[in-house]
């Protein structure tokens, strides 16, 4: 039994260590702890990069969802178009990555701006690589099926383009002839579409069966489902970097065009 009052601090501490049978934690424990922080930081960057690939997918494909020449869509549509979920995930996981790097052995020494910049470049770079492999489109479709309030771009595109009375049609190309095309719209209505004389022959040759296309023009006979096309363009989503959009538009120079598409021309001439 020791007299605690007369003991020096070092004696008291050594006695406490002995009594509590305290031993130094192993070096491996600390190495694993440090590695765990780096691993978590890596996972956070990875998740952030997946979010970036979906953000890219959404942003790149917005022009394929919104028909040209219409007034800006209502807020509800804009809300569903903007990749809110993915931006939130990207922000959250970038912050987590930052916190985890800061928690590593020497992480506290990194200044905030260069560390954040480095993490953002890494996340964006990886995200771009993921997008190039088609991950963005897969994730976006998965989220639309499983996450509340998420809508897929196909649904939004259908909603915006299937308006024959306004001069817009969307559907899958089933037939292509020199005089016109046949498409099956999302309601499985088959439309016989005649090319306007304004559409250049060379551009007509770019159309291929099986592709989802948007048609701009006007209804010729609503009962017979016939339509005059002034512009036909591919509405297939790009899972990767967009290739030049397949599009059969009006002839150039404008003097070569007929008057058939005059009323729809201003909005599609570009």
């Amino acid at each position: 039994m020791h007299n605690h009052d007369s003991q020096s601090t070092s004696e008291k501490i050594l006695e406490r260590i002995k009594d509590a049978k305290v031993t130094p934690r192993s070096r491996l424990f600390f190495s694993l702890k440090n590695a765990a922080f780096w691993l978590l930081a890596g996972v956070s960057v990875l998740v952030g990069a997946l979010a970036v690939s979906s953000i890219l997918f959404r942003l790149i494909n917005i022009p394929r969802v919104l028909p040209p020449g219409l007034p800006p869509p209502p807020f509800a549509v804009v809300f569903h178009l903007v990749p809110v979920l993915w931006i939130a995930l990207f922000t959250a996981f970038s912050y987590l990555a930052y916190r985890e790097v800061r928690s590593t052995k020497r992480g506290y020494r990194y200044e905030l701006p260069p560390l954040l910049l480095m993490l953002l470049i890494l996340t964006a770079g990886l995200g771009f690589a993921f997008y190039e492999t088609g991950t963005g489109i897969v994730l976006d479709r998965f989220a639309a099926r499983h996450v509340p309030f998420q809508r897929d771009l196909e649904g939004l595109q259908r909603e915006r383009w299937l308006r024959p009375e306004n001069g817009f049609l969307v559907g899958r190309l089933t037939d292509v002839t020199p005089a016109g095309i046949r498409i099956s719209d999302p309601k499985e209505v088959v439309w016989e579409i005649t090319f306007s004389e304004s559409i250049s022959d060379e551009k007509k040759g770019r159309l291929e069966s099986g592709e989802r296309v948007g048609v701009r023009g006007r209804v010729l006979d609503a009962d017979a489902n016939t339509f005059l096309a002034c512009d036909v363009r591919s509405l297939e989503f790009e899972g990767r970097l967009p290739s030049p959009m397949m599009r059969a538009g009006e002839k150039n120079p404008p003097e070569m065009r007929s008057t058939e598409c005059e009323d729809v021309r201003p909005s599609i001439s570009n």
């Binding site: 601090t9 501490i13 406490r16 260590i17 305290v22 130094p24 934690r25 192993s26 052995k105």
Partner: peptide, 22 residues
């Protein structure tokens, strides 16, 4: 203060292997 000081040294002993020579 004394209790805290002892806790500090206990923690130091327990974490000796985490001391970074840098």
């Amino acid at each position: 203060t004394e209790d805290l000081l002892q806790d500090v040294f206990m923690k130091v002993y327990q974490n000796l292997n985490s001391f970074d020579a840098g």
